[in-house]
Nucleic acid binder design. Structure first.
Lengths: 192, 192
DNA sequence: TTCATTCTGGAATAATCGTTTCAGAATGAA
DNA sequence: TTCATTCTGAAACGATTATTCCAGAATGAA
Protein backbone atom coordinates (compact mmCIF):
# COMPACT_ATOMS: atom_id res chain seq x y z
CA UNK A 1 0.00 0.00 0.00
CA UNK A 2 2.45 2.62 1.15
CA UNK A 3 6.06 3.21 1.74
CA UNK A 4 7.35 2.05 5.10
CA UNK A 5 10.03 3.24 7.52
CA UNK A 6 13.46 2.62 6.16
CA UNK A 7 15.57 2.83 9.28
CA UNK A 8 16.02 0.70 12.33
CA UNK A 9 14.73 2.70 15.25
CA UNK A 10 16.82 1.04 17.97
CA UNK A 11 19.93 1.61 15.93
CA UNK A 12 19.11 5.30 15.57
CA UNK A 13 18.22 5.64 19.23
CA UNK A 14 21.63 4.31 20.12
CA UNK A 15 23.34 6.90 17.97
CA UNK A 16 21.29 9.64 19.61
CA UNK A 17 22.11 8.19 22.99
CA UNK A 18 25.81 8.58 22.34
CA UNK A 19 25.36 12.26 21.58
CA UNK A 20 23.38 12.87 24.77
CA UNK A 21 25.96 10.80 26.59
CA UNK A 22 28.76 13.02 25.45
CA UNK A 23 27.15 16.44 25.64
CA UNK A 24 24.24 16.11 28.04
CA UNK A 25 20.63 17.00 27.29
CA UNK A 26 20.73 20.76 27.17
CA UNK A 27 23.97 21.07 25.29
CA UNK A 28 22.74 18.70 22.59
CA UNK A 29 20.90 20.36 19.70
CA UNK A 30 18.46 18.75 17.32
CA UNK A 31 21.02 19.48 14.62
CA UNK A 32 23.59 17.38 16.49
CA UNK A 33 21.06 14.57 16.73
CA UNK A 34 19.98 14.71 13.11
CA UNK A 35 23.61 14.66 12.02
CA UNK A 36 24.58 11.77 14.26
CA UNK A 37 21.50 9.67 13.61
CA UNK A 38 21.73 10.21 9.88
CA UNK A 39 18.04 10.53 9.71
CA UNK A 40 15.74 13.14 8.31
CA UNK A 41 14.40 15.79 10.60
CA UNK A 42 10.83 15.06 9.59
CA UNK A 43 11.28 11.33 9.97
CA UNK A 44 12.63 11.91 13.42
CA UNK A 45 9.65 13.98 14.49
CA UNK A 46 7.17 11.66 12.74
CA UNK A 47 8.41 8.37 14.09
CA UNK A 48 10.08 9.15 17.42
CA UNK A 49 8.85 12.54 18.48
CA UNK A 50 10.45 15.67 19.83
CA UNK A 51 13.73 16.12 21.66
CA UNK A 52 12.32 15.18 25.03
CA UNK A 53 10.62 12.03 23.78
CA UNK A 54 13.79 11.00 22.01
CA UNK A 55 15.74 11.55 25.19
CA UNK A 56 13.34 9.40 27.18
CA UNK A 57 13.80 6.57 24.70
CA UNK A 58 17.56 7.00 24.97
CA UNK A 59 17.70 6.72 28.73
CA UNK A 60 15.34 3.76 28.69
CA UNK A 61 17.49 2.02 26.12
CA UNK A 62 20.59 2.92 28.13
CA UNK A 63 19.21 1.38 31.28
CA UNK A 64 17.81 -1.71 29.58
CA UNK A 65 21.17 -2.49 28.01
CA UNK A 66 23.07 -1.90 31.24
CA UNK A 67 20.64 -4.02 33.22
CA UNK A 68 20.79 -6.88 30.73
CA UNK A 69 24.57 -6.80 30.76
CA UNK A 70 24.55 -6.84 34.53
CA UNK A 71 22.23 -9.82 34.72
CA UNK A 72 24.30 -11.80 32.23
CA UNK A 73 27.42 -10.98 34.20
CA UNK A 74 25.96 -12.14 37.47
CA UNK A 75 24.55 -15.32 35.92
CA UNK A 76 28.04 -16.36 34.90
CA UNK A 77 29.35 -16.31 38.45
CA UNK A 78 29.20 -19.30 40.76
CA UNK A 79 28.62 -17.55 44.08
CA UNK A 80 26.89 -14.38 45.25
CA UNK A 81 30.14 -13.09 46.66
CA UNK A 82 31.96 -13.70 43.39
CA UNK A 83 29.14 -11.97 41.54
CA UNK A 84 29.36 -8.87 43.74
CA UNK A 85 33.11 -8.68 43.35
CA UNK A 86 32.76 -9.05 39.61
CA UNK A 87 30.10 -6.34 39.40
CA UNK A 88 32.10 -3.93 41.54
CA UNK A 89 35.44 -4.38 39.85
CA UNK A 90 33.87 -4.28 36.39
CA UNK A 91 32.19 -1.02 37.30
CA UNK A 92 35.55 0.40 38.33
CA UNK A 93 37.03 -0.76 35.01
CA UNK A 94 34.14 0.74 33.11
CA UNK A 95 34.52 4.11 34.82
CA UNK A 96 38.21 4.15 34.05
CA UNK A 97 37.76 3.14 30.42
CA UNK A 98 35.05 5.68 29.64
CA UNK A 99 36.35 9.16 29.00
CA UNK A 100 32.90 10.57 28.45
CA UNK A 101 30.81 11.32 31.48
CA UNK A 102 28.07 8.88 32.34
CA UNK A 103 24.67 9.35 30.75
CA UNK A 104 22.89 8.08 33.84
CA UNK A 105 24.66 10.29 36.35
CA UNK A 106 24.69 13.25 34.01
CA UNK A 107 20.94 12.91 33.67
CA UNK A 108 20.36 12.60 37.39
CA UNK A 109 22.28 15.74 38.26
CA UNK A 110 21.52 17.87 35.22
CA UNK A 111 17.93 17.00 34.35
CA UNK A 112 16.24 14.97 37.06
CA UNK A 113 16.00 17.73 39.69
CA UNK A 114 13.85 19.90 37.41
CA UNK A 115 12.18 17.35 35.15
CA UNK A 116 9.60 15.23 36.84
CA UNK A 117 9.15 12.79 33.97
CA UNK A 118 12.86 12.10 33.76
CA UNK A 119 13.18 11.89 37.51
CA UNK A 120 10.44 9.29 37.78
CA UNK A 121 12.00 7.07 35.15
CA UNK A 122 15.46 7.38 36.63
CA UNK A 123 14.11 6.74 40.09
CA UNK A 124 12.28 3.62 38.96
CA UNK A 125 15.31 2.34 37.09
CA UNK A 126 17.50 3.01 40.08
CA UNK A 127 15.09 1.09 42.31
CA UNK A 128 15.25 -1.89 39.97
CA UNK A 129 19.03 -1.77 39.99
CA UNK A 130 19.26 -1.46 43.78
CA UNK A 131 16.74 -4.23 44.29
CA UNK A 132 18.70 -6.52 42.01
CA UNK A 133 21.89 -5.76 43.90
CA UNK A 134 20.07 -6.32 47.18
CA UNK A 135 19.00 -9.83 46.20
CA UNK A 136 22.61 -10.76 45.52
CA UNK A 137 23.72 -9.21 48.78
CA UNK A 138 20.98 -11.08 50.60
CA UNK A 139 22.08 -14.32 48.98
CA UNK A 140 25.68 -13.69 50.03
CA UNK A 141 24.44 -13.11 53.55
CA UNK A 142 22.30 -16.22 53.52
CA UNK A 143 25.23 -18.25 52.22
CA UNK A 144 27.40 -16.97 55.04
CA UNK A 145 29.75 -15.14 52.69
CA UNK A 146 28.93 -11.80 54.22
CA UNK A 147 28.16 -10.26 57.58
CA UNK A 148 24.38 -10.19 57.85
CA UNK A 149 24.05 -7.73 60.70
CA UNK A 150 23.46 -5.01 58.14
CA UNK A 151 20.37 -4.50 56.02
CA UNK A 152 20.82 -5.91 52.50
CA UNK A 153 18.98 -3.01 50.88
CA UNK A 154 21.16 -0.46 52.66
CA UNK A 155 24.21 -2.43 51.61
CA UNK A 156 23.05 -2.37 47.99
CA UNK A 157 22.44 1.36 48.19
CA UNK A 158 25.88 1.78 49.68
CA UNK A 159 27.44 -0.02 46.73
CA UNK A 160 25.43 1.94 44.18
CA UNK A 161 26.20 5.33 45.69
CA UNK A 162 29.87 4.42 45.76
CA UNK A 163 29.79 4.07 41.98
CA UNK A 164 28.56 7.63 41.65
CA UNK A 165 31.34 8.87 43.88
CA UNK A 166 33.94 7.07 41.82
CA UNK A 167 32.63 8.63 38.65
CA UNK A 168 32.87 12.06 40.21
CA UNK A 169 36.42 11.36 41.29
CA UNK A 170 37.41 10.14 37.85
CA UNK A 171 35.91 13.13 36.08
CA UNK A 172 37.93 15.44 38.30
CA UNK A 173 41.21 13.56 38.72
CA UNK A 174 41.30 11.07 35.86
CA UNK A 175 43.30 8.84 38.16
CA UNK A 176 42.62 5.13 37.45
CA UNK A 177 44.70 3.95 40.40
CA UNK A 178 42.53 5.92 42.80
CA UNK A 179 39.41 4.29 41.39
CA UNK A 180 40.98 0.87 41.66
CA UNK A 181 41.94 1.53 45.25
CA UNK A 182 38.47 2.73 46.11
CA UNK A 183 36.88 -0.33 44.55
CA UNK A 184 39.22 -2.60 46.49
CA UNK A 185 38.42 -0.66 49.63
CA UNK A 186 34.70 -1.14 49.00
CA UNK A 187 35.09 -4.87 48.41
CA UNK A 188 37.18 -5.23 51.53
CA UNK A 189 34.64 -3.21 53.48
CA UNK A 190 31.52 -5.12 52.57
CA UNK A 191 33.06 -8.51 53.13
CA UNK A 192 34.58 -7.63 56.48
CA UNK B 1 36.41 62.14 37.86
CA UNK B 2 33.82 59.68 36.66
CA UNK B 3 30.86 57.69 37.77
CA UNK B 4 31.61 54.49 39.62
CA UNK B 5 29.94 51.11 39.85
CA UNK B 6 26.73 51.25 41.82
CA UNK B 7 26.26 47.62 42.76
CA UNK B 8 28.04 45.23 45.06
CA UNK B 9 29.65 42.59 42.89
CA UNK B 10 29.75 39.79 45.46
CA UNK B 11 26.08 40.34 46.19
CA UNK B 12 25.22 40.08 42.50
CA UNK B 13 27.42 37.03 42.03
CA UNK B 14 25.50 35.31 44.78
CA UNK B 15 22.19 35.98 43.06
CA UNK B 16 23.57 34.59 39.82
CA UNK B 17 24.92 31.59 41.69
CA UNK B 18 21.45 30.75 42.92
CA UNK B 19 20.12 30.70 39.38
CA UNK B 20 22.91 28.42 38.16
CA UNK B 21 22.36 26.33 41.25
CA UNK B 22 18.74 25.81 40.43
CA UNK B 23 18.84 25.41 36.67
CA UNK B 24 22.37 24.37 35.82
CA UNK B 25 24.70 26.16 33.43
CA UNK B 26 23.19 25.33 30.07
CA UNK B 27 19.58 25.78 31.10
CA UNK B 28 20.32 29.23 32.49
CA UNK B 29 19.99 32.08 30.02
CA UNK B 30 21.54 35.50 30.27
CA UNK B 31 17.99 36.82 30.54
CA UNK B 32 17.46 34.70 33.67
CA UNK B 33 20.68 36.07 35.10
CA UNK B 34 19.96 39.71 34.27
CA UNK B 35 16.51 39.36 35.84
CA UNK B 36 17.77 37.70 39.00
CA UNK B 37 20.80 39.90 39.48
CA UNK B 38 18.78 43.06 38.89
CA UNK B 39 21.62 44.47 36.96
CA UNK B 40 21.89 45.90 33.51
CA UNK B 41 23.06 43.70 30.69
CA UNK B 42 25.78 46.13 29.74
CA UNK B 43 26.96 46.52 33.32
CA UNK B 44 27.15 42.76 33.58
CA UNK B 45 29.31 42.42 30.49
CA UNK B 46 31.41 45.46 31.38
CA UNK B 47 32.21 44.58 34.97
CA UNK B 48 32.01 40.79 35.20
CA UNK B 49 32.22 39.46 31.69
CA UNK B 50 30.33 36.91 29.66
CA UNK B 51 28.27 33.96 30.83
CA UNK B 52 31.23 31.67 31.26
CA UNK B 53 33.27 34.18 33.26
CA UNK B 54 30.26 34.86 35.46
CA UNK B 55 29.84 31.15 36.02
CA UNK B 56 33.47 30.76 37.01
CA UNK B 57 33.06 33.50 39.59
CA UNK B 58 29.95 31.78 40.89
CA UNK B 59 31.57 28.41 41.43
CA UNK B 60 34.59 30.02 43.04
CA UNK B 61 32.35 31.95 45.38
CA UNK B 62 30.35 28.79 46.07
CA UNK B 63 33.44 26.83 47.01
CA UNK B 64 35.00 29.61 49.09
CA UNK B 65 31.86 29.96 51.15
CA UNK B 66 31.48 26.23 51.65
CA UNK B 67 35.11 25.84 52.59
CA UNK B 68 34.98 28.68 55.09
CA UNK B 69 31.86 27.25 56.68
CA UNK B 70 33.54 23.86 56.90
CA UNK B 71 36.62 25.25 58.59
CA UNK B 72 34.57 27.18 61.12
CA UNK B 73 32.57 24.07 61.86
CA UNK B 74 35.65 21.95 62.45
CA UNK B 75 37.29 24.62 64.59
CA UNK B 76 34.37 24.47 66.98
CA UNK B 77 34.81 20.78 67.71
CA UNK B 78 37.06 19.46 70.45
CA UNK B 79 38.33 16.27 68.83
CA UNK B 80 39.10 15.12 65.30
CA UNK B 81 36.55 12.34 65.63
CA UNK B 82 33.86 14.75 66.79
CA UNK B 83 34.74 17.07 63.91
CA UNK B 84 34.38 14.27 61.36
CA UNK B 85 31.06 13.17 62.77
CA UNK B 86 29.85 16.75 62.75
CA UNK B 87 30.93 17.29 59.15
CA UNK B 88 29.33 14.08 57.97
CA UNK B 89 26.01 14.45 59.75
CA UNK B 90 25.76 18.11 58.78
CA UNK B 91 26.31 17.16 55.16
CA UNK B 92 23.49 14.67 55.40
CA UNK B 93 21.26 17.36 56.90
CA UNK B 94 22.23 19.79 54.19
CA UNK B 95 21.42 17.33 51.43
CA UNK B 96 18.04 16.65 52.97
CA UNK B 97 17.22 20.30 53.48
CA UNK B 98 18.16 21.42 50.00
CA UNK B 99 15.52 20.69 47.38
CA UNK B 100 17.57 22.13 44.60
CA UNK B 101 20.33 20.00 43.17
CA UNK B 102 23.86 20.82 44.22
CA UNK B 103 25.77 23.40 42.24
CA UNK B 104 29.05 21.58 42.78
CA UNK B 105 27.90 18.15 41.74
CA UNK B 106 25.73 19.52 38.95
CA UNK B 107 28.77 21.28 37.59
CA UNK B 108 30.99 18.23 37.84
CA UNK B 109 28.64 15.99 35.91
CA UNK B 110 27.14 18.50 33.49
CA UNK B 111 30.01 20.80 32.65
CA UNK B 112 33.35 19.49 33.88
CA UNK B 113 33.66 16.54 31.45
CA UNK B 114 33.63 18.87 28.43
CA UNK B 115 34.95 22.12 29.86
CA UNK B 116 38.60 22.06 30.74
CA UNK B 117 38.62 25.40 32.55
CA UNK B 118 35.75 24.39 34.78
CA UNK B 119 37.20 20.95 35.33
CA UNK B 120 40.53 22.35 36.46
CA UNK B 121 38.93 24.66 38.98
CA UNK B 122 36.62 21.97 40.31
CA UNK B 123 39.47 19.52 40.49
CA UNK B 124 41.63 21.94 42.42
CA UNK B 125 38.79 22.81 44.78
CA UNK B 126 38.08 19.14 45.31
CA UNK B 127 41.72 18.49 46.11
CA UNK B 128 41.70 21.25 48.71
CA UNK B 129 38.55 19.80 50.26
CA UNK B 130 39.90 16.24 50.30
CA UNK B 131 43.21 17.37 51.70
CA UNK B 132 41.49 19.24 54.49
CA UNK B 133 39.41 16.17 55.33
CA UNK B 134 42.53 14.02 55.20
CA UNK B 135 44.29 16.13 57.82
CA UNK B 136 41.37 15.63 60.20
CA UNK B 137 41.31 11.91 59.47
CA UNK B 138 45.04 11.74 60.07
CA UNK B 139 44.65 13.55 63.37
CA UNK B 140 41.92 11.12 64.42
CA UNK B 141 44.26 8.28 63.55
CA UNK B 142 47.17 9.83 65.44
CA UNK B 143 44.92 10.39 68.45
CA UNK B 144 43.89 6.74 68.40
CA UNK B 145 40.26 7.56 67.62
CA UNK B 146 40.38 5.70 64.36
CA UNK B 147 41.90 2.60 62.83
CA UNK B 148 45.11 3.76 61.16
CA UNK B 149 45.70 0.73 58.96
CA UNK B 150 44.06 2.60 56.12
CA UNK B 151 45.48 5.54 54.20
CA UNK B 152 44.09 8.85 55.47
CA UNK B 153 43.81 10.31 51.98
CA UNK B 154 41.86 7.30 50.74
CA UNK B 155 39.61 7.58 53.76
CA UNK B 156 38.97 11.26 53.01
CA UNK B 157 38.20 10.42 49.40
CA UNK B 158 35.86 7.72 50.61
CA UNK B 159 33.95 10.20 52.74
CA UNK B 160 33.76 12.80 49.97
CA UNK B 161 32.54 10.37 47.33
CA UNK B 162 29.88 9.16 49.74
CA UNK B 163 28.42 12.66 49.83
CA UNK B 164 27.96 12.59 46.06
CA UNK B 165 26.20 9.25 46.28
CA UNK B 166 23.84 10.54 48.91
CA UNK B 167 22.94 13.52 46.78
CA UNK B 168 22.16 11.23 43.88
CA UNK B 169 20.00 9.10 46.12
CA UNK B 170 18.14 12.10 47.46
CA UNK B 171 17.46 13.56 44.03
CA UNK B 172 15.92 10.26 42.95
CA UNK B 173 14.13 9.12 46.08
CA UNK B 174 13.73 12.22 48.20
CA UNK B 175 13.93 9.96 51.21
CA UNK B 176 15.54 11.71 54.20
CA UNK B 177 15.57 8.57 56.34
CA UNK B 178 17.65 6.77 53.76
CA UNK B 179 20.20 9.57 53.77
CA UNK B 180 20.31 9.56 57.55
CA UNK B 181 20.86 5.81 57.57
CA UNK B 182 23.63 6.04 55.03
CA UNK B 183 25.37 8.75 57.00
CA UNK B 184 25.14 6.68 60.17
CA UNK B 185 26.44 3.71 58.25
CA UNK B 186 29.39 5.74 57.03
CA UNK B 187 30.21 7.01 60.50
CA UNK B 188 29.99 3.51 61.91
CA UNK B 189 32.16 2.22 59.11
CA UNK B 190 35.04 4.65 59.41
CA UNK B 191 35.30 4.36 63.17
CA UNK B 192 35.19 0.58 63.21
C1' DT C 1 28.98 75.01 36.60
C1' DT C 2 31.79 72.55 33.36
C1' DC C 3 33.14 68.49 31.08
C1' DA C 4 35.55 64.27 30.50
C1' DT C 5 34.47 59.91 32.00
C1' DT C 6 31.72 55.90 33.21
C1' DC C 7 27.64 53.66 34.00
C1' DT C 8 22.88 52.50 32.42
C1' DG C 9 18.80 51.09 29.77
C1' DG C 10 17.09 49.36 25.82
C1' DA C 11 17.32 48.37 21.16
C1' DA C 12 19.71 45.71 17.74
C1' DT C 13 22.56 41.91 16.25
C1' DA C 14 23.50 37.56 14.18
C1' DA C 15 23.37 32.92 15.28
C1' DT C 16 21.08 29.03 16.85
C1' DC C 17 17.29 26.87 19.04
C1' DG C 18 13.28 23.26 18.54
C1' DT C 19 9.65 22.52 15.57
C1' DT C 20 6.52 22.67 11.41
C1' DT C 21 5.45 22.72 6.72
C1' DC C 22 5.23 21.05 2.13
C1' DA C 23 6.39 19.65 -2.48
C1' DG C 24 8.12 15.72 -4.44
C1' DA C 25 10.31 11.06 -4.42
C1' DA C 26 9.56 6.31 -3.17
C1' DT C 27 6.65 2.61 -2.31
C1' DG C 28 3.68 -1.38 -3.09
C1' DA C 29 -1.08 -3.33 -3.51
C1' DA C 30 -4.44 -3.33 -7.24
C1' DT D 1 1.09 0.90 -14.92
C1' DT D 2 -1.83 3.29 -11.67
C1' DC D 3 -2.57 5.79 -7.56
C1' DA D 4 -3.30 6.38 -2.72
C1' DT D 5 -0.20 6.49 0.86
C1' DT D 6 4.04 7.41 3.40
C1' DC D 7 8.54 8.81 3.79
C1' DT D 8 12.20 12.27 2.69
C1' DG D 9 14.79 16.54 2.08
C1' DA D 10 15.14 21.19 2.46
C1' DA D 11 13.35 25.41 3.40
C1' DA D 12 10.94 28.25 6.62
C1' DC D 13 9.10 29.24 11.09
C1' DG D 14 9.07 32.13 15.26
C1' DA D 15 11.25 32.10 19.57
C1' DT D 16 15.29 32.44 22.12
C1' DT D 17 20.24 32.44 22.52
C1' DA D 18 24.60 35.21 23.91
C1' DT D 19 26.57 39.36 22.91
C1' DT D 20 27.28 44.24 21.20
C1' DC D 21 26.23 48.89 20.42
C1' DC D 22 24.95 53.50 21.38
C1' DA D 23 22.51 57.53 23.01
C1' DG D 24 21.86 59.62 27.20
C1' DA D 25 21.88 59.92 32.35
C1' DA D 26 24.87 60.15 36.30
C1' DT D 27 29.06 61.29 38.35
C1' DG D 28 32.69 63.97 40.50
C1' DA D 29 37.17 66.50 40.03
C1' DA D 30 38.40 71.06 38.26
Amino acid sequence: MARCVEFNEVEKIEKAMNVFWEKGYNATSMQDLVDAMQINRSSLYNTIGDKHQLFMKCISNYFDNAMQELKDKVANETSAKAALIKVISDKADWIISCDKGCLGMKTIFEIAPDDCTVRNVMSKNNDIFIEFLATIVQKAMDDGEMDDSEDAALMAEYIATSFTGWKQSYILNGNPIKIKKMSEFLIKNIFK
